[in-house]
Write a protein that binds this DNA or RNA. Structure first.
Lengths: 333, 333
DNA sequence: GTGAAAGCGCTAACAG
DNA sequence: CTGTTAGCGCTTTCAC
């Protein structure tokens, strides 16, 4: 393995000079610079990042911690973060925590030990508290998707309450009365969407039916199980709303299992637009989130903050869009 | 930040001893060990991984390089690699290359510079050549999904030729004659699946129709465009087979765009089982790959190899499964 | 069984 | 403008 000393010797300069050339620092004569570059090239020298990191106590790596790699939302976000980071000269590590606070903590510790430059995170509610206790906030951090307050971090989110209110109102205004809602239990996101949902019912003088409003883990099988249980009661809903696309898939499976038709037997709407949501018959009515922009914005904010740690932190709220398709029965009007 | 010297001083020992205790090395008196551990605990000391890595020239990080994070195949693999690696005390970095050989190379270089312990990779055909040229093979490496020969690496794959042959034969045996096939162009996988496809046609004395056998990039929009073009010709197929789930989604979109019905107007079958493939009506007939096992096996092999670099390399071939649902029209018999 | 000391490969004062 | 030097925090001989 060729090291900086080898380059220095071959170029007849000191290691300091080689280091300067590579870091593009001033005060190096052009001819020396050229000579060094040539040697670097011919020897195929590549700086040892580990040594650089140790010495300068800084790296060009940021981490993205997501709670579920199978959630299309995070896939899009991940792609955006990747794009933005690479443009700005950073690499990104992707971590999957399965919405498990324990894993989240391990992960954060690991990242600190590895001295990453910063972190983008969508924490569980529990983790939000951990964040304050431990010294994780020494790392530059931006939190996405989940809402935090009183924490010294940047934040990029959407207006969950409003978005849920919008899509629920849409359902109500088209005649549905017994509307079920299934929400993720681990995140502030689920809470907020539930709030918008319930508020929409109340605003239209509909009394929420507790048996039809459920918290659950936000995965496919949880959606399936929850819906199956609902369908077995007397209180069958005439419409159902899910808080993300994984829950949606589970509920749709349950609807099929019960050989019900959409929107005839039951109307359907959900958060998150996906490829397959358009493919289904009927296609799904959804709230589309600006996933790519969320990722891009988060990455850019993080890197700005890395470069200027005392920059005041800010919250960015991005807009969502209601996409009306056939699953809510509204296009039949 | 508390460092090893602080622990040593507080415990009244040398840094060497602390290091020994933490690495669980022999030749330390139990009482000393206990005292050191207590100090570590009370000071909240965490070793600096960067320094460890630099000094010992080894890390506990492996990387998984995938070509498309939106491909459910890689999501499952990723989860499996994660699970297995953590069980064995390793962390995993996830990299997305978008099937771009350039990105792949940058990534591999980056990983070498960062001194990761090993890499799991599904390379493009082009990258397989790069691998030999450059010294990437100094890193322990296992290649998944794609076939490599003559390279000093471990390999875990499925039998693509046979699997494609099986599902194509199934289509043929149920009366379809004008069967189209769409395959990924960037990978050996696409080539092999095409080979199985064509061989099945020939084995059943069906003459392949060149206009209906296409290579393309393996993404949704490519599947859509390719199918749209096929549907505009005189030579409309009576069945269509796609080489992965992204292409499948694109083709299905095209089928809908042309208001054709499945399997009435056209039968459909694909590689890769997905959640939404079951959700569709009709549900999709597919070849299911043992994705989780692929990931797990790869991670375990890699770590074995890291721990014993001169271990002879091996190829593991895992079995696939044909899942017959309604989209191929075969259940109507 | 334990400590002293020599680096891992690099960067950043400080001289000159 | 360039070289010398002193570490970054840790592991690992080599003595004792």
């Amino acid at each position: 393995m060729v090291k900086i000393k080898d380059v220095a010797d071959a170029a007849g300069v000191s290691t300091a000079t080689v280091s300067r050339v590579l870091a593009d620092k001033p005060h190096v004569r052009p001819e020396v610079k050229k000579r060094v570059m040539e040697v670097v090239e011919s020897l195929g020298y590549r700086p040892n990042r580990v040594a650089q990191n140790l010495r300068s106590n800084s790296s060009k790596i940021i981490a993205l911690i997501i709670s579920d790699i199978e959630n299309p939302f995070f896939q899009r976000v991940s792609r955006a973060v990747d794009d933005a980071a690479h443009e700005l000269g950073y690499s990104v590590l992707l971590y999957n925590t399965d919405e498990n606070p324990e894993k989240e903590k391990i992960c954060l510790n690991f990242l600190r030990d590895e001295n990453v430059a910063g972190v983008i995170l969508s924490p569980t509610r529990q983790a939000i508290n951990n964040l304050a206790d431990t010294s994780f906030l020494d790392m530059p951090m931006v939190i996405i998707d989940r809402h935090v307050s009183d924490l010294d971090v940047d934040n990029v989110v959407i207006d969950n309450v409003k978005s849920a209110h919008t899509i629920t109102s849409h359902l109500i205004e088209h005649g549905y009365k017994r509307i079920a809602g299934i929400f993720g239990i681990g995140s502030t996101t689920g809470r907020e969407r539930r709030e918008g949902f319930v508020r929409a019912l109340k605003d239209h003088d509909i009394k929420p039916i507790p048996d039809l409003i459920k918290y659950t883990n936000a995965r496919e099988e949880d959606g399936f199980n929850t819906a199956m249980k609902m369908f077995q009661t007397q209180e069958r809903p005439d419409a159902i709303f899910t808080s993300n696309s994984l829950l949606a898939a589970g509920v749709l499976l349950a609807i099929r299992e019960n050989t019900m038709t959409i929107p005839g037997d039951i109307a359907f709407a959900s958060f998150d637009d996906t490829t397959w949501g358009k493919l289904l018959d009927p296609a799904l009515t959804v709230i589309e989130q600006p996933t790519y922009e969320i990722g891009r914005t988060a990455a850019e904010m993080l890197i700005k903050r890395i470069q200027d740690p005392k920059r005041s932190n800010r919250e960015v709220v991005l807009n969502t869009k209601l996409i009306i398709r056939q699953s809510c029965g509204c296009l039949e009007d």
